[in-house]
Design a binder for these strands. Structure first.
Length: 718
DNA sequence: GTAGGGTTAG
């Protein structure tokens, strides 16, 4: 009675206290748990029932099989399968259908298929289960084939569940063409009013990258906007790079009265906030999760999304503690954690996590390998990188293009161009990212000519089309070789290719023009870009004015930028401060520095501080630089570190200021006694004012080997 | 008895 009205916990209590249980009470309990989705409990009671010697009824057996499917307990499922055969349940079509469904849910299509073909008599549910099985695995061809055979051979009329399977198949296979056909068929048959089918169509368009169609159906065609339809559309936006739309839709959802987000909604929207590195929103969503009591410890997917998000927001400690609070890990969780350490410049912790992972029961996958190769680059440890390269070869990861790309990228970062080239040449299959990695690697290593040569080769290869990332490398390579004309040429070339100068390529060209003295071209392209400008376009333009001595123009761009709807970010102020620095606009620079903190709430980073020290230095106003540093310490905006004194010492060297220079060097020698660069600066400073004896003294300290060589990163044994 | 939505990289 209790279980019928959903008060399953009360029923369980009564059941526990029953002195004598009979088959009926066991079956009732299994039914109660099963219909409320308590699958673990179903398994438990089912086990107890068999142990006590009672024979379950058809319904209980069916529910137990269903529970195995839901929980992914395929080994228990196989035992129940045997039990079914031994106890004569195999004649029941419903039980066999449940078995098929269990196997296909676990991805064991071959077993499901065997059972299906061995059946003497099949009903519509058997066909539907099989179709759905193929659909989940993205095999739309088999799904459609079964759909046709079902009608031709056994004359079954498809039900809405059949179509649910077909639409799912198109989505999973990203087959837009088939999806559109079935959409049309459903309209024709008048089945779209079934809200489950409507939702599945929204999901299909989302998965096929046509979020615009998904949105139209969501807005106009759905008879009922269920939680699942909201989730499908948010997922569609988020997975297709429309992060802002995902966030907007989620925020709209929060205002709706008749729908509340669940853990899947959150797992969908969190990556969108993460792309913006929007820590405030991520924490706010985390608060919703806690407030609504979603189970975090067991929800691997949700926690993985949160670990990743905190990592991207540079709150690595929150990411670490979320990771630590988990009971079950999967490979994505480990990967998100390692990626977080890389992003937070703590690659050593990433490597440690990887070693920990090797001792856990979760095996690394190709994404893990991509992450650890990044960790090695970040750490600058060639030795470790080569060892992991060997590890990855022995595990067969070299067949993954992404892993190959990551390894090529790593060797470029170590300056091992030859190794990268060899790997590139022997790679059995390449994608456009492989080519881009090579091009970018050459450019970063100052080999622009090689980049252009390879680009030529790439164009002859019809398999790989030039994309925006390719163009950016080519713009940089051309301009390093032929400065201004290079920028004009690649600009023309991009237009000739029929390339829609998107935001990224546009920004890169503006940057190339500006850096090569063609500020007029930069400005006109920047204006031409219009709506396709983003925040970074403004930053590039501001910096570009700066290097061309147009400090005043740079300053006025800040206000135009705000009029255009973009908020300045820390990089904007780096561009502004260095513009002021190059144009000698000390007063303005100082004002922007203050505005940044007070009006925009941006805490100055080390780079901001070194920029402003450089500005004072160029203007010969070293005392003011020093005062500002002292003020930074006092107000806790700045911590005492070698980079700051290094910047001051460098400025002193330019101004031949011995007094402050010695002071800076003193602080430096205490903070970073191993840093050779500063000793050279100090000895140069003495030499510049003809104090040769002092210069010699510093040089001797350096040469006497008082400098300890920075110990290499310790080796890792695998 | 079958039944729609989720995480990680390049």
């Amino acid at each position: 009675m209790y279980s019928k009205i959903g008060r399953i916990r009360d029923a369980a209590l009564v059941f526990e206290e029953m002195p004598m249980r009979d088959a009926i009470s066991y079956n009732t309990m299994i039914n109660g748990f099963g219909s409320n989705g308590f699958y673990e409990e179903v398994m438990m009671v089912f086990g107890q029932m068999l142990k006590s010697g009672f024979l379950p009824n058809m319904e209980s057996v069916s529910l137990a099989i269903m529970a195995c499917g839901e929980l992914g307990c395929i080994s228990t499922g196989i035992l129940i399968h045997r039990f079914v055969i031994q106890n004569g349940f195999y004649s029941d079509i419903a039980i066999v259908n449940s078995l098929i469904s269990m196997y296909v849910k676990a991805g064991r299509l071959e077993i499901g298929r065997q059972i299906f073909y061995d059946m003497q008599k099949r009903d519509l549910v058997s066909w539907n289960s099989m179709i759905t099985g193929y659909a989940r695995n993205g095999d739309w061809f088999e799904a459609v084939d079964l759909f046709l055979t079902m009608q031709k051979v056994e004359s079954f009329t498809p039900s809405p569940v059949t179509f649910l399977g077909l639409v799912l198949a198109c989505g999973q296979a990203r087959n837009l063409y088939m999806g559109e056909s079935i959409h049309g068929l459903l309209i024709h048959m008048g089945l779209l009013s079934d809200f489950r089918l409507g939702t599945s169509i929204v999901d299909m368009y989302s998965k096929c990258g046509r979020v615009d169609c998904a949105r139209r159906i969501f807005d106009t065609d759905l008879s009922e906007r269920s939680l699942v339809s909201w989730n499908s559309l948010i997922a569609g936006y988020s997975q297709n790079g429309y992060d802002y739309n995902a966030v907007l839709l989620f925020e709209q959802m929060l205002l709706e009265a008749n729908v509340k987000p669940d853990s899947i909604t959150i797992a969908n929207v969190i990556p969108a906030y993460a792309t913006f590195a929007d820590l405030k929103s991520v924490s706010a969503v985390h608060a919703i999760v806690i407030k609504r009591g979603f189970e975090l410890e067991s929800d691997t997917v949700l926690v993985t999304a949160m670990v990743d998000a905190y990592g991207k927001c540079l709150d690595i400690e929150s990411a670490t503690s979320m990771f630590a609070s988990m009971q079950k890990f999967n490979v994505a969780t480990w990967n998100a954690m390692i990626s977080g350490y890389n992003l937070n410049k703590q690659a050593d912790r990433g490597i440690s996590r990887f070693l920990e992972m090797l001792h856990s029961e979760v095996l690394p996958d190709s994404i893990t390998m991509v992450m650890v190769f990044q960790s090695c680059s970040e750490l600058g440890s060639l030795k470790q990188g080569s060892m992991l390269h060997g590890h990855s070869l022995s595990r067969g990861f070299d067949s993954h293009i992404t892993v190959g790309n990551a390894i090529i990228d790593m060797y470029f970062r170590f300056g091992c161009l030859n190794t990268s080239e060899v790997l590139f040449n022997v790679m059995p299959s390449k994608n456009v990212i492989t080519w881009n990695t090579m091009l970018c690697g050459y450019v970063k290593n100052g080999q622009s000519a090689l980049a252009l040569k390879l680009f030529h080769q790439m164009q002859l290869d019809s398999h790989h089309k030039v994309d925006p990332v390719t163009m950016i490398s080519i713009i940089q390579a051309s301009t390093t070789i032929t400065a201004g004309p290079g920028a004009e040429m690649t600009h023309g070339f991009a237009l000739k290719l029929g390339f829609d100068l998107g935001t990224m390529v546009g920004n890169s060209l503006v940057d190339a023009y500006a850096k090569n003295g063609l500020i007029v071209n930069a400005r006109s392209l920047f204006e031409q870009m219009g709506r396709s400008r983003d925040q970074s376009s403004w930053n590039v333009m501001i910096a570009g004015c700066g290097v061309n001595g147009q400090g005043k123009e740079a300053c006025s761009l800040l206000f135009l930028m705000e009029e255009d709807g973009f908020k300045p970010n820390p990089i904007t102020f780096i561009s502004l401060l260095s513009s002021c620095s190059h144009s000698g606009l000390v007063k303005e620079g100082r004002r922007f520095f203050d505005l940044m903190v007070t009006k925009y709430g941006i805490l100055p980073s080390l780079e901001h501080w070194t920029c402003i020290i450089d500005m004072f230095g160029r203007a010969g106003r070293l005392e003011e630089a020093y005062q500002l540093i002292e003020y930074g310490f006092h107000s806790n905006l700045l911590s005492d570190c070698d980079a700051i004194w290094g910047a001051l010492l460098s400025a002193c060297r330019e101004n031949m200021n011995i007094e402050l220079g010695t002071l800076a060097a003193e602080r430096l020698s205490r903070l970073a006694p191993q840093n050779c660069g500063y000793y050279t600066l100090l000895s140069n400073l003495y030499a510049s004012v003809n104090r040769w004896d002092e210069a010699e003294k510093v040089r001797r300290v350096f040469e006497n080997g008082k400098l300890v060589k920075k110990p290499g990163v310790s080796m890792v044994m695998i």
